[in-house]
Amino acid sequence: MPDESEASRTTQRERQEALEAQIAQLKQEVSNLNRSLAERAKEMSERASGWYDAATDRASRATEAMRTQAHSVSEAVKENPGTISSAMLVGGLIGFILGMLMGQADGRRSRWY
């Protein structure tokens, strides 16, 4: 019987060693996966940072262009108040006339007053 007991211990020890080897291999694979994920996260972070910087730059340029245009319009209004007033008056009259014509074009003769 001692042979069976010793053979049993040997196979048990072999199983234990095989299991430990598998665990070590799995730990190595997990370590490799973690390293790979860290590299990808760094790449994505750099890419997102580049997109953010480009968007910020474009927004800054657009804001500056709008500011310049608003300043130009403001200066034109200050220099030519009569022209702007006349243009607004003409635009208002044209809108009023179009509204009257559209109101009369309707077949119904209902009045608002």
Rank of each mutant, 00 (worst) to 15 (best):
M1I: 07
M1L: 14
P2K: 05
D3G: 01
E4F: 07
S5H: 05
S5Q: 11
E6C: 01
A7C: 06
R9T: 12
R9Q: 10
Q12S: 08
R15Y: 05
Q16T: 12
E17T: 02
A18S: 15
Q22H: 14
I23W: 08
I23V: 15
Q28Y: 04
S31M: 12
N32K: 12
R35N: 12
L37M: 11
A38D: 14
R40Y: 11
K42E: 12
E43H: 13
E43K: 12
S45M: 08
S45A: 13
E46L: 03
R47V: 07
A48K: 10
A48I: 05
S49W: 08
S49C: 02
G50F: 06
G50Y: 01
A54M: 09
T56L: 14
D57L: 11
R58Y: 06
A59C: 10
R61G: 01
T63M: 09
T63C: 05
A65P: 01
A65F: 03
M66D: 04
R67H: 12
R67C: 08
R67T: 15
T68L: 11
A70K: 04
S72T: 13
S72Y: 03
S74G: 04
E75C: 02
E75K: 01
N80P: 00
N80L: 02
I84N: 00
I84G: 01
S85Q: 13
S86G: 03
A87G: 04
M88Y: 01
V90K: 08
V90W: 03
G92H: 05
G92I: 01
L93V: 13
I94Y: 00
G95D: 05
I97R: 07
L98F: 10
L98K: 13
L98T: 13
M100E: 10
M102V: 02
A105Q: 06
D106I: 10
G107S: 15
R108D: 06
R108A: 12
R108T: 04
S110K: 02
R111D: 11
W112V: 12
W112L: 14
